[in-house]
Each structure stands twice: as C-alpha cells, then as structure tokens.
Design a protein around this nucleic acid. Structure first.
Length: 151
DNA sequence: GCCAACGTTGGC
DNA sequence: GCCAACGTTGGC
C-alpha cells in the first residue's frame, strides 16, 4: 500500500466534483515523472491526499483511493481535445491514466502554509518540488497530515 | 497578474 | 548532447 498526493485546480475539478461523480478518470497527466508513478508504482487501493492548487489558500481537502490499473490516456489521440499530444500514437502511448474514487473529506483542511510551517514535513515533495502534480507521500507524512486535519 | 522554478523542444 | 528559447505551473 502506497500513499500519494494528487493535485487539482478546484476551478477545473474539485473534490466536490469527485463526490458528485462518485468516481473519475485522472486523465491529462503530461509530465514524465508523474506518468511513471501512474504507470509503474501506483496500485489499486493506494491512498490519495486530494490537494486543491492554484487558489488563494492551497490545501489538502480530502482522501481518495485508486480503483483501477493504469491504462492508456486516449485523450492524447483526440485532436480536438485539450490534452491532445501530437507525438502519441495508438501503438505508442506516451501517457497513462487511472480511476479514483472519493473516500472522505478531512475534518479540517490542511493548508500548504501549515505544511510548510511543520518541521516534520520539511522533506515532503509538496514543499520541495511543488510543481509535480502527482507525488509520493510517506506513511509518516500521511499520518501527520491526518493528525493535523483532526485538530 | 506577476514571476520564479522548472520541464520540454529543437537547432546546432 | 548542449543549451537557449519557450511554455506551464502554481504560490504569492
């Protein structure tokens, strides 16, 4: 079982959207490092911290869970789609996606500011390589975030 | 809306 | 294979 942090801009797709949909496909990952996590490391039942980015108070809002194996991101082949990638072909899929479902909202959101202010979280990828849209989270980081959400 | 950080592209 | 140019992300 592994832990991850998925970022989403709430104006694009928020956790409430995920609740409404009951599940969703996490398409549009166009970064190789994130792609490799999806393709090689992320497994069914892995746990996700759902992060809202690009807003006035960036924060972790909820927990989600992986519910599918990785599969080719077919949006990369759709010329009319915003995630179209001219270098992808049906023989050679550069990009992958998977499905996730909501688990539960945190009692309290955990803000980026509070994460940065917590010395125990100074090694989090979120703090050090903030632009990566899918990030590994350690078990101890996961526990600390959950604790912070309860207080 | 600015801009630093950083990933990608493509000419050489 | 280097690196300048460029595009994107996302915090502020």
């Amino acid at each position: 079982m592994n832990y991850w942090l998925f970022k989403s801009e709430p104006s694009d797709y928020s956790y409430d959207d995920l609740i409404e949909d009951n599940k969703t496909q996490w398409e549009g990952i166009r970064n190789y490092q994130a792609r490799n996590f999806i393709r090689d490391r992320i497994k069914i039942n892995d746990k996700i911290l759902f992060y809202h980015s690009n807003i006035s108070i960036p924060h972790i809002v909820a927990l989600a869970e992986v519910i599918s194996e990785p599969y080719p991101d077919h949006f990369a082949l759709d010329k009319t789609h915003k995630y179209y990638d001219p270098k992808s072909t049906s023989d050679n899929t550069r990009w992958f996606m998977l499905n996730i479902k909501p688990v539960k909202k945190l009692d309290n959101i955990v803000t980026l500011e509070s994460i940065k202010n917590n010395p125990k979280l100074k090694d989090m990828v979120l703090v050090n390589r903030s632009r990566l849209s899918i990030q590994p989270v350690t078990k101890s980081e996961w526990k600390i975030i959950i604790d912070m959400s309860l207080s």
